[in-house]
């Protein structure tokens, strides 16, 4: 499944890039992310309690950042697995200056397997939208709250 979109964040590109590559901030932004530990260069292991409404699953995930080009671009790869199945997502993030604001243009692929794929077909896209919506809302908050 493809997901793509553009979000505007009220901060400079450098700031947004730094926020989005800071594991502590990512942990706060990724919905349901309970912990995040460094396991390598730009690679983290995470525990996610993710879901939609009361439908929740616990996933263990690896989060890695690749192709980092501050402040223009990086690629985020998340692979999680848990009892309801697995989720794999990879997305290209491009940061474009928009008159002092930053446009975060993202496009990527999300693949879901196991139980979630076999029974959740009609809701998966909505769930992905919901999660990315939450993610950027959290990011916006972080950009605000840590604004100096």
């Amino acid at each position: 499944m493809k997901i793509e979109g553009t979000e505007k964040i009220n901060a400079t590109r450098e700031r947004v890039f730094d926020l989005l590559t800071d594991p502590a901030i990512l942990q706060k932004c990724i919905p349901g992310c309970e912990q995040m530990e460094k396991i390598g260069d730009n690679q983290y292991s995470a525990k996610l309690s993710a879901g939609v409404g009361p439908v929740k699953g616990v996933f263990t995930a690896t989060v890695s950042m690749q192709d980092l080009r501050r402040p223009d671009h990086y690629k985020l790869v998340v692979e999680g697995k848990g009892q309801p199945g697995f989720v794999k997502g990879s997305g290209e993030l491009n940061f474009v200056d928009d008159g002092g604001l930053t446009q975060v243009q993202y496009s990527g692929d999300v693949n879901v397997g196991g139980l979630l794929a076999s029974v959740g077909q009609r809701m998966i896209q909505g769930a992905a939208n919901m999660m990315s919506g939450k993610f950027f809302a959290n990011l916006e908050n972080e950009a605000k709250s840590t604004d100096s």
Partner: peptide
Amino acid sequence: QLISGSLMD
């Protein structure tokens, strides 16, 4: 993945 995996779909 078999995405027509239940009688909901």
